[in-house]
Design a protein around this nucleic acid. Sequence first.
DNA 1: CTAGCTCTTAAAGCCACTTTAGGAGCAACA
DNA 2: TGTTGCTCCTAAAGTGGCTTTAAGAGCTAG
Lengths: 144, 144
Amino acid sequence: MTISEAGKRSGCSPPTIRYYESIGLLAPAERTPKGRRTYGWPDVSRLTLIRRARDFGLSVNQVRELLSAADGPGDGCAPAAAIIEEQLRAIHARRTELRLLETTLQAMLNRCNATCGPGGAASCSIFEDIAIPGPGSRTKGNAS
Amino acid sequence: MTISEAGKRSGCSPPTIRYYESIGLLAPAERTPKGRRTYGWPDVSRLTLIRRARDFGLSVNQVRELLSAADGPGDGCAPAAAIIEEQLRAIHARRTELRLLETTLQAMLNRCNATCGPGGAASCSIFEDIAIPGPGSRTKGNAS
DNA sequence: CTAGCTCTTAAAGCCACTTTAGGAGCAACA
DNA sequence: TGTTGCTCCTAAAGTGGCTTTAAGAGCTAG
């Protein structure tokens, strides 16, 4: 199978597949005599697993851990579950953050509609609302 | 005020402030005779607005639009409200995505606990669950 | 044989910064 | 007066996870 076929079946673009190979998520692919990469079904499975894990918001390093748990000797259950639990917590936290953000932004819009409404204020209330000092922390831990 | 004082009051680090200046979110700061940047309260306000807008998930370009609406002639209400509405929609969509992700991951964990449970399977069910082809779309539009 | 696709590599670009390197200044204390 | 330890400056490189570009080679259908 060519790289683009493997890509279509797994949902990764050819450059992404080459990138994954370059960072060691995939073993170097076999090559035709002319130097083109060839892939088989196990490669497609691995690529699909990688893409889905990325879709779930896992970092490439977490995917790496997941793969080494899958490749390792045992059933890999404990490390895999740990990674998923970690991601669940991260997603939950992010959801809470976003819920708060949504509420705040909606309130800003409402106030704008109420006060700036028909006549037009000197300056829209949105600017005041955004510029209140608020929580001092830039968001660091993103559940992507 | 020195750059680090302005940073403390606005919640931006000095390198970030210099970066904002370099990309034109801030006019070049005034300098002391020795070449050090000095800031006043209007700069702190502007920086606070920028940081808060970034905390709300706006991109730097959206912040740029917001600032030019604020700097512009009118009250800036319409463009500002449009940006906030856009962001509200993005956040809402992202929340829906994350809710789905959370459900899926939780189901994977539950199945792992049920099937891999005590005896240990040959291979953890999580790997099967992740590697099902699933939706083919990598997440592009992120409400950060 | 040629047109238009895919493949190859290496390098640069993206976003929004952060970090590092190397050098200079400034404030406080002995 | 020194000197210690902070802050400041610039320019450049690093981060993550790719995507895009450039320049060239090969493959396939008409």
